[in-house]
């Protein structure tokens, strides 16, 4: 599986709430950020959690977000950031 995104791409985390185990924190869903690192490919934890150890590997990215975009009442400095590891199937291209 080849990586769909590259460093510098603007992406949005899907606003989705599937049942079961996943590694995408609630607080970043629906938020827009920038890819800062392509981490390689890893097995999808949403399958691993249920015992499927031979599923396909999937690209994993580090995505950087502005803290003020994450929290309505963020009290820190406007340039503060958070970086999160997110699997490719959770990301869509930011169109706007």
């Amino acid at each position: 599986m080849s990586a769909r995104y590259k460093v510098g791409d603007t992406v949005r985390v899907r606003q989705a709430f599937p049942p079961g185990h996943c590694r995408t924190p609630y607080y970043c869903r629906g938020k827009s950020g920038v890819v800062v690192r392509c981490c390689g490919e890893y097995r999808n934890p949403e399958y691993l959690a249920y015992g499927t150890y031979d599923g396909p590997e999937e690209p994993l990215y580090r995505v950087q977000f502005m803290q003020t975009d994450m929290w309505d009442d963020y009290s820190g400095a406007p340039h503060d950031k958070v970086e999160i590891e997110i699997y490719e199937h959770w990301l869509v291209p930011e169109t706007s």
Binding site: R23, T24, P25, C39, Y42, P45, L60, R62, Q67, G76, A77, H79, D80, K81, V82, E83, I84, E85, I86, Y87
Partner: peptide, 15 residues
């Protein structure tokens, strides 16, 4: 100081 940018890294997956 507020001039220093704080970058929080959330270890959510394989790193």
């Amino acid at each position: 100081n507020d001039s220093v940018e704080i970058k929080v890294h959330d270890s959510t997956a394989d790193m």
